[in-house]
Structures are given as C-alpha cells and as structure tokens.
C-alpha cells in the first residue's frame, strides 16, 4: 500500500464507510416518491414512520458490520472540528434553500445548488488534510446536480413533469438520493479494495 493511501484511509476511514449513506439515500428517495404520489389529506403518516424506523435499523446493522469487519479508527480533533463546522453551515444553508424553493417558483433549485456546493466542500474537506486524487465521483456528482438545478434557467422548464413528478423539488431530491446511494456503494468498493482481507505469506524477515 502506498503511503498517501495509508494516510488517506486513516484520516477518512469513517467517510469511506459508504454503506452508511445507502439507508439515508433510500429513505429520502422513497419519502419523495411517497409525497409525490399522495395528496395532502389522504396521506397516511405510517409510511414515513416505517421508513424512518427501517433507516435507523439498517444504519445500526451497517455500523456493526463496519466495526466487526474493518475495525475502529478515532478521528483527530482537527478532523472532527472541520466536519462539525461543515455540518452546521451546510444544514443551515440547506434549510434556507428548502424554504425558498417551496415558497417561491424559482428558475433554479436552490436546494440542488446547496447540495452540489456541499458535495464540493465535502470533497475539499476530505482531501484537505491528505493530498491525493481520490473519490473523484464526488465533484463529478456536484457538477451533475448543479447542472440539473439550473435546467429551467437553460430552457428545460418543467423537466420533472416528464418523470411524472409534480414539483422541481421532487426531481432534485430524487437525483440527490440516487447520487447518495451510488456514491455510498462507490465509497464502500473503494474501502474494500484498499483494505482487502489479505494475510501475509512470508514476513519472517520483518521481525
């Protein structure tokens, strides 16, 4: 294993546990499909409750899997602080963008643009402490989501209706959740490939 990769894995071990993102992505996807397919008065809120419960259970199972298969790494306080800062700023901007998207009929999706900016910022955060070209699908996903977010501005107004969706927000949310699931699988494959369950064949000289 090369040394850059060793540093990268140790620094970003938690971020590379991609399967964690899958229940969140699926929950967002199914909730969006459910909201899009039902009307205000006829909605049974049992569905989102069950989805949330399923997400939590799946998240715990995945957490145990990573712990028992790959072990435990505690991040440096510097890395934790950076993640906390990004979460707070990203969450605040996301809520603001969501409010503007549902309150006004805009030519762009602000939530999509904030998500894309968040992905780029996350990519910089992950690769900030350790230099090296890893997880390039994150900036590529950011460009894709940003592009979709400005489609109405580029002339493709009501593009979401072609997919049977009633609002731009649903279209963007589905794109975001699909990307989250794909990025999760990608991250997991990267982790499995870089930390295979290998065993030395002959290391007598090493000791």
């Amino acid at each position: 294993m090369d040394i850059k990769q060793t540093r990268f894995i140790a620094t970003n071990f938690y971020n590379l546990q991609g399967l964690r993102a899958i229940p969140l992505g699926l929950c967002l996807l199914l909730t969006t499909v459910w909201v899009n397919g039902t009307k205000g008065t006829g909605r049974s809120f049992l569905v989102p409750v069950l989805l949330l419960a399923g997400t939590i259970i799946l998240f715990i199972v995945i957490d145990r899997y990573y712990l028992h298969t790959f072990g435990r790494v505690q991040r440096t306080p510097e890395s934790r602080r950076l993640e906390w800062l990004f979460s707070v700023v990203g969450g605040t901007l996301g809520l603001g963008a969501f409010w503007l998207d549902v309150s006004y009929k805009l030519q762009v999706s602000l939530i999509g643009l904030v998500f894309a900016a968040g992905l780029l910022a996350d990519y910089i955060r992950i690769t900030w402490l350790v230099k090296g070209r890893y997880l390039l699908h994150i900036p590529l996903g950011a460009i894709l989501i940003a592009g979709i977010s400005v489609l109405p501005l580029l002339g493709a107004s009501d593009w979401w209706k072609a997919f049977g969706l009633t609002h731009q927000l649903f279209g963007i949310t589905i794109m975001m959740s699909v990307f989250t699931v794909i990025a999760g699988i990608w991250g997991h494959i990267f982790l499995v490939r870089t930390l295979p369950p290998r065993m030395e064949t002959n290391n007598d000289q090493a000791i």
Binding site: T6, R7, A10, T11, F13, H68, F70, G71, R72, V73, Q74, R75, T76, P77, S79, L129, V130
Partner: peptide, 9 residues
Amino acid sequence: ACKSADYLF
C-alpha cells in the same frame, strides 16, 4: 493520521 486505531484496522 488519526487519534487512535484498533487492532483489527
């Protein structure tokens, strides 16, 4: 590159 790591990792 981290605060600590366990034996399995």
